[in-house]
Design a binder for these strands. Structure first.
Lengths: 242, 242
DNA sequence: CGATGATTTGACGAGCCTCAAGGTACGTGG
DNA sequence: CCACGTACCTTGAGGCTCGTCAAATCATCG
């Protein structure tokens, strides 16, 4: 049985911008169903033009691109509340692939109705643009991390980012959160080798800054980690939820 | 005397999606003036909430972020036709700064009218989202370049990108284009040191792949450069012009 | 209980960074 | 008209971070 938008468990988190009843009803009309997929399942493929758009409701995944010689760049990690497929929706083609890293539940929308949606609900159209801007914001930060920070700093930044995002949607219990990603995913995200990523993670563990092991990420002192990452542990601004 | 949108010299380039008369008139109503600035002038500051949005009409610039310890990441280069200030427009705050690298002419829009604009012209609202998606597409590619490619490959990619973009708006004459950027800008864009960037650029010059000197970028064989960059010299898809 | 995938550890070398100095072009003022 | 300052580009030397190669350990699963 599909979750009703009015009952959406995500919306109550302060991370997300408040929605009017009108907005919620608009989403309910736009939503055509739910999709449950297992870990490892591809959701969208780079270069494809999916007929459907999604919002992650439960579970996590990765967005990634592959180069001609087979290297993989993880562009971002997908958390509950993330909108998937916007590029195909407006440009007609995805610039990256999306794959589930854990079992996921996705809200499904029809791409063919996106334009009607823009005309009918300008508030929600504005919110979709907002989401695109949030993604641009994040990618700029990621670029800065890979380009300007050392491996230790970059990984600190990445772990802190993921942890705070998980915190904001209530996934952190006892300073820990379940992380279904592999070290290879993190390495591909930060442009580091798997070996060096592994060694740097154990350095963070030794220094009691962040412990990622056995599928759980534990962070005790966010401020100290933020100092290493040369960033501020500022609250990520609230964003719309589609 | 400000250029009328109906006379816009950019729109005729095939890079930009065709606009209906209705769209052009919408833009004319949205545009409140033109701004001419000298090289080195800041346009928008990271963290600020500008009351104005811009479209680059002439000249070039850079988008950049600075870290707490003073390092600079150039996020993108601004070319004629680029929309500036979208993040402030929807999120209320810029995630990066924008600065002119040459003398620039900017079309000016009022941020306060953006929402009205979304309601009144859903086609153009859709196009603004498209532009945001294009930027996201680019940042994903940039991330891949910095993360997965060697200095030689990354610089090849960057030069090729800039060259093709310039070509698409008619700035290339005799296989050359005027580039107002410094080597430091390019270094900060690719996460490399100035010294190594310089040495790598002369390697590209020695191998007759790309010659960036005296303020001009010259590329004779795009395919060969693309092969080094491990990318395809594919035409960038057309995009909307605001 | 072998097969597969993920994590861990060590050794070694290369790509890139830092430091340092010199070169060139250009503007400014004495 | 030349000395000087500034901004940018260029080149060399040396060292560190990080990548590559290789192999061992561990967990999961059929």
């Amino acid at each position: 049985m599909a979750t009703k938008c009015s009952q959406c468990p995500l919306r109550r988190h302060p991370l997300f911008k408040a929605m009017s009843d009108h907005d919620v009803k608009a989403m309910q009309r736009f939503k055509v169903g739910e999709l449950i997929i297992e870990a490892g399942t591809p959701v969208l493929i780079e270069g494809s033009n999916s007929p459907q758009l999604f919002t992650a409701l439960r579970g996590m995944g990765i967005r990634y691109k592959t180069t001609l010689d087979g290297a993989r760049q993880v562009v971002n990690f997908v958390f509950p509340g993330d909108f998937i497929g916007l590029q195909a929706g407006v440009m007609g083609e995805m610039a990256h692939s999306v794959e589930a890293s854990s079992k996921m539940t996705l809200c499904v929308f029809n791409r063919s109705e996106l334009w009607t949606f823009f005309k009918t609900y300008p508030e929600r159209a504005f919110d979709i643009t907002w989401l695109a801007a949030v993604e641009e914001h994040f990618l700029g930060e990621a670029l800065t991390s890979i380009g300007q920070r050392s491996a230790l700093e970059a990984l600190s930044w990445a772990l802190l980012r993921m942890f705070i995002r998980a915190e904001q949607i209530g996934l952190v219990h006892n300073r820990s959160v379940a992380m279904p990603f592999r070290q290879q995913d993190l390495a591909d995200a930060m442009g580091l080798s798997l070996v060096h990523t592994n060694k740097t993670l154990s350095k963070l563990r030794d220094q009691q800054l962040a412990d990622w092991s056995d599928g759980y990420l534990t962070i005790n002192d966010k401020d100290r980690l933020a100092a290493i990452a040369k960033t501020e542990p500022d609250l990520v601004p609230s964003r719309p939820l589609m």
